[in-house]
Design a binder for these strands. Structure first.
Length: 185
DNA sequence: CATTTGATGTCCT
DNA sequence: GGACATCAAATGC
């Protein structure tokens, strides 16, 4: 993955990432769900300025930002333009299924990485990875094998900025944490 | 199927 | 003290 890939607006990177494969220490899968957050976004951790927790978000693009959510889950973000990031919300598991199952307990493959907390548990993400560059081990990337059909919607689990359509999914994937709402007919 | 609940870190007022 | 980018298990249809 070219470091310049991340040095763009988070919403652009979030959409482009769909279909890429992410591996962490050889374990991972196809990115099927992302969300974008930026400095002007009231739902973003960077909205209120730098703190100890979100320091990585104010660092250089192309690095990881890991934070704890609801006191117990880890969430993996990819830092883009200054104070913006992409939250990885779901993968279609392809590599290291046994390691993921061991970390998550016996769980059906569809739920191994369907959600930011589950994904982080399956890939053994924690504060150790916070601030690490994404273009070097343990991180590895593969380009999409075929053209990707990306669908957009509103983000999940937030109470401010709810209208911003910065959630991106691989169209038709059954590995997302929650299906996109049906288009109005 | 939907809704509720408990787990409890970090930042905010 | 309250809010929060969550999850899994328990409960009520």
């Amino acid at each position: 993955m070219d470091p310049a890939f991340f040095a763009r607006p988070a919403a652009v990177v979030a959409a482009d990432l769909i279909g890429h494969t992410l591996l962490v220490a050889g374990v991972g899968g196809i990115v099927v769900e992302t969300e974008a957050y930026d400095r002007e976004d009231p739902a973003s951790h960077s909205f209120a300025g730098p703190t100890r927790r979100n320091a990585s978000m104010f660092g250089p693009p192309g690095h990881a930002y890991v934070y704890r959510s609801y006191g117990l889950h880890w969430c993996l973000n990819l830092v883009c333009e200054p104070a913006s990031a992409v939250l990885l919300r779901a993968l279609e598991p392809t590599d290291g299924l046994d390691a993921m199952r061991a970390r998550r307990g016996l769980s059906e493959p569809r739920l191994l990485c369907a959600g930011p907390g589950r994904l982080s548990q399956a890939l053994a993400i924690n504060l150790v990875q916070d601030g690490l560059p994404l273009d070097r081990p343990p991180f590895a990337w593969r380009e999409p094998a075929a053209p990707v059909n990306v669908a957009a919607g509103t983000r999940i689990g937030i109470s401010r900025g709810v209208e911003t359509p910065w959630r991106f999914v691989l169209a038709g994937s059954r590995f997302v944490s929650k299906p996109l709402p049906r288009p109005r007919d």
